[in-house]
């Protein structure tokens, strides 16, 4: 299986030094488990390609172009000529406008599907690939997708391998000069000013310090509380189970297994008792 990893020119949030965005380094690790991977970077600076070698790629292509120009055209052209089975990208490229649109635009240009938020991938039978997609609360969605496909990587994917100087030294970079492209196709560049950090919205801000503490600890939301005193442990257990069933985290008593997710919890109890 052949994989192309899209690379962008990130910067460290504290030091401002150039770095490879974390999800892209994760993408490299994921790609290494699938087959031969090459890196692809479009931009004025070769740094991301060099960093990607240190994170585990053997080969990366740097397509030089002016800062601010649209990377989608050169990227798509290169991908068409390389014809990889999978195009991997970080959740959102850094260094440019950071709209996260590039993988989507590339997928549209190539006419292939895009699957966001992958945490694991395995090759399946002929021309298919199995992708685990991260959903909230630890839930996964396992997709079987026909290649070629564009996949973006979720931060919950396995952590990236650390940068290894020796690997960076050994890998090779192909430098390509791109044909001059239309500057940021269409829309005029938006007005820019230095970023000013604003406080995050507090979900339930109150007036006094006590109110704010309550908002932070969530006490304010405890409405209709029920406190039971002088109960036997058995009655207490019944109350607890009834409450858990009412809020829907515990399967009703008539269900097959003890927990809401029978297979998983049986498994867990086996672990606990062994």
């Amino acid at each position: 299986m052949r994989i192309a990893v899209l690379l962008s020119a990130g910067r460290h949030p504290v030091s401002g030094k150039p770095t490879l965005p974390r999800t892209e380094a994760q993408a490299i690790r994921m790609a290494a488990g699938l087959g031969a991977a090459t890196g692809l970077h479009v931009g004025p600076d070769a740094f991301p390609a060099e960093a990607a070698l240190g994170h585990g790629l053997d080969y990366a292509a740097h397509i030089a172009c002016a800062a601010g120009s649209d990377p989608v055209g050169p990227l798509a052209a290169r991908i068409v000529s390389d014809a990889p089975d999978i195009v991997l990208a970080g959740r959102r490229g850094q260094g440019g406008d950071e709209t996260g649109l590039v993988p989507y635009a590339v997928a549209a240009r190539l006419g292939v599907p895009i699957v966001p938020d992958a945490v694991a991938m395995r090759p399946a039978t002929d021309g298919l690939v199995e992708i685990d997609q991260a959903l909230p609360k630890g839930v996964l969605r396992r997709l079987v997708v026909r290649t070629p496909v564009v996949v973006t990587v979720h931060p919950a994917a396995p952590p990236p391998l650390p940068f290894a100087f020796g690997k960076a030294r050994r890998g090779s970079i192909e430098r390509i000069a791109a044909a001059p492209t239309d500057l940021a196709a269409g829309a005029p560049p938006p007005e820019e000013r230095p970023y000013r950090k604003r406080p995050k919205m507090m979900r339930a801000a109150g007036g006094s310090a006590a109110d704010r503490l309550k908002a932070v600890t969530g006490e304010a939301t405890a409405g209709g509380a029920k406190v039971l005193d002088h109960q036997t442990p058995e009655d207490a257990a019944k109350e607890v189970l009834a409450f858990l069933r009412r809020v829907g985290v515990l399967a009703p008593a008539s269900a097959a297994g003890p927990g809401r997710r029978p297979a998983a919890s049986e498994d867990a109890s086996r672990h606990a008792t062994s």
Binding site: V14, S15, K17, T19, L161, P162, A164, G166
Partner: peptide, 30 residues
Amino acid sequence: QTLELSAPPQKSFETLANLREADEPGARPL
């Protein structure tokens, strides 16, 4: 292990990245 194999201990990945990228093991501003 570290320079050729990317195999320092798992828990040091972030520290090493911080040292490389932020000149500081905890990525705190200088």
